[in-house]
Design a protein around this nucleic acid. Structure first.
Lengths: 144, 144
DNA sequence: GTACGAATTCAAGTCGACTTGAGGTCAAGC
DNA sequence: GCTTGACCTCAAGTCGACTTGAATTCGTAC
């Protein structure tokens, strides 16, 4: 693959240079070297950045994501860890669905106070049963 | 409803006192007053805390959540904002599904390098098309 | 009446993931 | 050969959501 300098990588990936530098600093990506001052990257970095973005979307921290690449920079993820995470995503989806339903109900329910609406209360209870609430939290990205 | 002091609220809600104080400080919840030093809360606060937790799970910031309650402390959420958010959750679910599939594939694929596996590449492209990657990010909670 | 434990205040610290800013350097185009 | 503009470094700042710590104040039980 082609060699790209940081500006090109930034443009093609949508990841700004400061972030690319930061990623390099923490060892998440590696540059081939410099041309003058400019960092040069292997074209592969674009796919790697996609993986990183996906990992973030999946709720992995950068540190965890870094742990998923072997020394050669290729993905090297413990398979069962992946399955565990996939299952977590599955559960997360279920939660989101419940939540979506709650929001939709609240948007449509004509009851003066939701606190008195039985449907609302039922959904809330469902949410609690699923332990949607009162969970230790952790970060993951979202859309704006 | 009963009057609870902060310790009870903490115990029954799972939200620690320091967080309750913080929530009061930023105006997210209100105490009835004090008994000695101790904050007293209306029992309703428990449901409110559930709503707050749900809101967080939905990716609302505390500020946004605060905006969802009227002066009387009752939920008072702009309905179309709710629908917008529900739709966002919907999209988020689709992303999570794709991501889950990618993870499962990676876990099962025997190819030496995923970068060379056509299925992997296809899934990645699907993810990109869904704009799973390269999105401005924002916080939301996750399970540990 | 005093000791205890739980709650209080307030300022400061933490965490992850970046961004910002000041001041410096270099390759390419004119 | 000089300007330009994109890049560089390094330290410090930011953001949201809390937590921590030190010093203090109560109500309750003995």
């Amino acid at each position: 693959m082609r060699v790209l300098d940081i500006g090109e990588v930034a443009e093609r990936s949508g990841v700004v240079p400061s972030t690319l530098r930061y990623y390099e600093e923490i060892g998440l990506i590696a540059s081939l070297g410099r041309r003058g001052l400019r960092r040069q990257f292997d074209g592969d970095v674009l796919l790697k950045l996609s993986l990183i973005a996906m990992g973030k979307a999946a709720g992995f921290s950068l540190e965890e994501i870094a742990g998923m690449f072997g020394r050669d920079g290729r993905p090297e993820i413990p398979r069962d860890q992946l399955r565990v995470r996939a299952d977590e995503l599955q559960r997360q989806m279920v939660e989101l669905r419940t939540l979506r339903d709650v929001l939709r109900h609240v948007a449509d329910c004509p009851a003066p106070s939701h606190l008195e609406c039985p449907t609302f209360r039922k959904l809330m209870q469902a949410a609690s049963r699923e332990r949607l609430v009162y969970r230790p939290s952790r970060k993951s990205p979202r859309t704006r």
